[in-house]
Simulated scan of single mutants.
Amino acid sequence: MEARINVSKIALLTTVANFGLYEKTRSYQPPGIRKLVIDGRGGMYGLDSLFYAFEKLPLKGVKWLILADEDVLFLENKALTEIIEKMESGNYTVAGVRDGGTMPNRRHNPFVPNTFFCVLDYESIATIYSRKEIQKQQYSNPKEFTDDLNHLHVGFDANSLYEPYYCFFLWLKRKNHKFLFLDADLLHPNTDELATKVYNLDNNPFLIHTWYARAYGKNTGQTKRINTIIDTYAPDSNDQAEEAEVYKDKFFKYKLGLRKLKKRIQNKLGKVL
């Protein structure tokens, strides 16, 4: 990151379900900034990961929180500096890629970003953060938002509630926070319907999202596909990559199990009634 950005106020958070893949991509993460990991092997990801970050992680002093999955390969780091600068000057709270209308494999809600890569003004959000408020926002109202979607080249569902974490971003939109949306496209449109390249503010690719991190090391085809992308596109790695601070909710898998049990019981009771 460049000197004009106060790197001590930036942190990069990765919720990791596949540590084998994370070990391959970690050295390409932007150097010089704080790295944090949430151990997601117990089923924590998405909305649960966001709640854990805002409620449990030691983020005092952090202004900008970058979310990046373990299957994100950073190609260059200047773009992050420029995105954060634009967010700061333009009073944006969120930057990311729309989860509908941009990526051919994601035709869901175009008003919110997918969390595979996202930049949050953590400091601003933390001052108003309320789990109870957020949990009440998983609904859609036709024509509620006024984003101009005419330029989108992929189909979408403006009323989609496909991902549970949408409520976090819908909450921010309903509080009139500004979103900076980045362009993206398939890396190899003729041969790979998954891998996505994300463009910086100058319309040049600055990261690749391979998708299917959970399949890495388990599915031969997906493992080969991801390794080929890394081998082909990875820039010079940071051999002195900072060790990440690793955090884990040891009781989460039990909480998740109880949640699923409660839902099954409610569904059964609903059918009986």
Rank of each mutant, 00 (worst) to 15 (best):
L269T: 07
W211I: 04
N159H: 11
L80I: 08
L182P: 05
L152D: 05
V37Y: 06
H188S: 11
K63Y: 10
D185V: 01
I128A: 04
L21I: 10
G221P: 00
D147M: 08
K253Q: 11
S89G: 06
L194I: 01
Y52L: 08
P110S: 12
D231R: 15
D239G: 12
S124I: 02
P142A: 12
L172V: 11
E76L: 10
K262P: 05
A11D: 01
Y247N: 09
Y22N: 12
F252G: 00
S49Y: 00
A184P: 06
D69Q: 08
V119S: 01
Q222N: 09
E243G: 11
K271W: 15
E163M: 13
R174A: 13
F74G: 00
L261R: 09
V246T: 11
S130N: 15
F169E: 05
L207N: 01
N114T: 09
I66H: 00
P58R: 11
A158H: 04
D185M: 05
I38G: 00
T25V: 12
S237P: 13
L186P: 02
R264W: 13
L73W: 02
L207C: 05
V16A: 04
N190C: 10
F251I: 12
V16K: 03
F74T: 00
K250S: 11
E70Q: 15
T102I: 15
N105S: 09
D239N: 14
P235D: 12
A11L: 09
T223A: 06
Q135K: 15
K218F: 13
D48G: 03
K136E: 15
E2W: 10
A244V: 08
L80Q: 04
L80T: 01
G155T: 07
T25A: 09
S130F: 11
F54D: 03
D236N: 15
A95I: 08
Y122I: 09
P58D: 14
A234I: 07
A213L: 04
I125A: 01
K260V: 15
I230M: 12
L273M: 12
A95E: 04
F169P: 00
T220E: 13
L73V: 04
G43S: 10
V112A: 03
L186E: 00
Q266V: 13
E23P: 07
E23K: 13
T25C: 10
W211N: 00
A158Q: 07
N267Q: 14
I38A: 02
D236I: 14
L261A: 11
K175Q: 14
K224Q: 14
E23G: 12
F54G: 00
L182A: 04
I66P: 02
M103E: 03
R106E: 01
L59F: 08
W171A: 03
A234Q: 08
L75D: 06
I128E: 07
L12V: 04
A195C: 09
K173V: 04
